[in-house]
Amino acid sequence: MPVRIVDTTLRDGEQKAGIALGIKEKLEIAGLLDKTGIYQIEAGIPAMGGHEKKSIYKIRSMGLKSKISGWNRMNLSDVKHSIDCGVEIIHISVPVSDIQIKSKLGRDRIWVTDNMKKCISFAREKGFEVTVGLEDASRADLGYIVELIAAAHLEGASRIRYADTVGIMLRRSVYETIYFLKQYCQMPLEMHAHNDLGMAVANSIAAAEAGAEFVDCTIGGIGERAGNCDFCQFINAAGAYLGLFEDTNKEEITNLQKEVMCIITKK
C-alpha cells in the first residue's frame, strides 16, 4: 500500500527551540519540498499571527502541487486564522491523554469530545478538509481514542493523526496499536513519531506496515527535543523494508535536505 508523506518541517520542525524562520525562508523551503512530490506541507500555525500567518498565506498562494495545511489548537479562534490563510487542510490537534486533558487543559474527556466536534463542524461548514491529530495518543486510553475517532468521522473529518507526542513508543506497540485502530477507523491513519528514544524511523515504518497511509516527517528530523521522523532516513528505510518510494530519487532527496538545512541555519 502506498504511503504519503506529510512534511511538518515548517511547523513541528520549526518549533524546535532555537529555530526561527522568516517569511522568505519558509517560502523557499515550501518550494523545495513541493519539488520532491511530498503530498502535504504542514506550513505552520496560523494562530501565531504576524509573520507566521503571512508566510502561510503566501505559501498557499504559490500554487504548489503539495497540499498546504495549517496546524490548530482545538478552538474556533485558531481555526478562523487558518481559514484566513486559505489553507487546503485544517488540522485540529486534540489532546487525548488524561495527563494533557487534566494538566494542560484543566478539563475532562467530555469537554474535549464536544470541543473537537464543534471545531470540525465549523471548519467543514466553511468547506475545508479537516484532519484530526490525537495529541499524546501514545499515553491515552485506547478506548477513548476509538470513541473520538468515531465522533470525528461523524463530523466529517477526513483523516486521523496518531501522535507519539513524547516519543516513548516502541515499534511493536506502534504496530499493534495502528493495526488495532485500523479495524475501527474508517478514515486513513497518519503516524506522527518523535525521536526521544531514537525510534522515530522504526516506529513510522511499523505504522506503515500496520496500515497507516500517511507518515509525518521533517527534513533532517528536526523538531521538539530529539526531533521527529527524519524524511531521508524514512524514505531509505521504507524502500528497504516495505519496497516503497522506489521511484524516488534518493540523491535528489539528500540534496534537498542539504539545501533546506542551509536555509534553516542560514549557512
Binding site: K16, G18, S103, K104, L197, R225, A226
Partner: peptide
C-alpha cells in the same frame, strides 16, 4: 538533538509547550 544525550533535548520554546510544561 541526539536522543537521550543531546544538550538541547530539554530546551523548550514554543508557547504551547512552555504552557504545558509550566503546568506539568
Amino acid at each position: 538533538s541526539k536522543p537521550v544525550i543531546g544538550r538541547g533535548i530539554f530546551r523548550y520554546e514554543s508557547g504551547i509547550h512552555a504552557d504545558g510544561i509550566q503546568k506539568n
